[in-house]
Design a protein around this nucleic acid. Structure first.
Length: 209
DNA sequence: CCAAGGATACTC
DNA sequence: AGTATCCTTGGA
């Protein structure tokens, strides 16, 4: 079932774990569909979140799409090499998003392996935000695109299953941002899933224990 | 561990 | 214009 706009109209912190288990479907035309199940996400939320591109209400051409209504794509280039796929959450003008950090291949794993130039079928194929975009063929061209429309080339589907067996912990790559926010448990992934980028040594449950 | 890589944002 | 920074990856 295609997820509609309503689903994305919540804050990133609650949307991020709910996106686990959902299907990203990318339609490249000519019958070429690549899809994968979301296994790892990170929430970037609020003005006070130093890891958020929209911290302090910062607004530039690059992060402009974060201020769109929930359910739009925010794709940007990181380290000059890798594209990152985020899903904007909440109402327009807020500036929150969920980063998709890993997926499990569903349709067209052969094409993913071609795109990634490897023959793996584990975290080495799709475990990492840059790898997700490369495998699925998501680029900056998809920035600002709505994901909930019938004709969208990227859509998010609900399988009906709710992932309860997930882990939360600190986000990846936040070390430069001194302050509490580096350690906030805003990263979520499906427990013991082989497509997760960097499993934690110390595991937290949803209550933060 | 470290360098590549390029767009972007901030400082002159 | 010049430079530092960046939510990474792949290969020493």
């Amino acid at each position: 079932m295609l997820l509609l706009k309503d689903f994305f109209m919540q804050d990133a912190m609650s949307l991020a774990p709910q996106l686990l288990g959902k299907i990203i479907m990318v339609n490249h035309g000519n019958e070429m569909i690549i899809s994968g199940q979301i296994t790892e996400t990170e929430a970037y939320c609020g003005l006070e979140d130093l890891g958020n591109h929209a911290k302090d209400g910062r607004r530039t051409p690059k992060n402009e799409s974060m201020y769109l209504e929930g359910g739009h794509a925010y794709v940007y280039k990181c380290y000059g090499v890798h594209d990152m796929f985020n899903i904007v959450s909440g109402p327009a003008e807020v500036g929150e998003a969920v980063l998709i950090r890993a997926v499990a291949p569903i349709e067209n794993i052969e094409q993913m392996q071609l795109n990634r130039n490897c023959i793996y079928d584990d975290y080495r194929l799709t475990g990492g935000p840059g790898k997700v975009c490369e495998a699925l063929g998501i680029t900056k061209n998809h920035d600002k695109m709505p994901l909930y429309a019938d004709q969208s080339s990227i859509q998010i589907y609900d399988t009906g299953t709710i992932i309860e067996n997930f882990v939360s912990g600190p986000r990846v790559g936040m070390s430069r941002h001194v302050g509490d926010c580096s350690n906030w448990p805003r990263r979520f992934y499906i427990a013991k899933n082989k497509y997760v980028s960097k499993p934690l040594n110390v595991w937290y449950d949803w209550e933060g224990n």
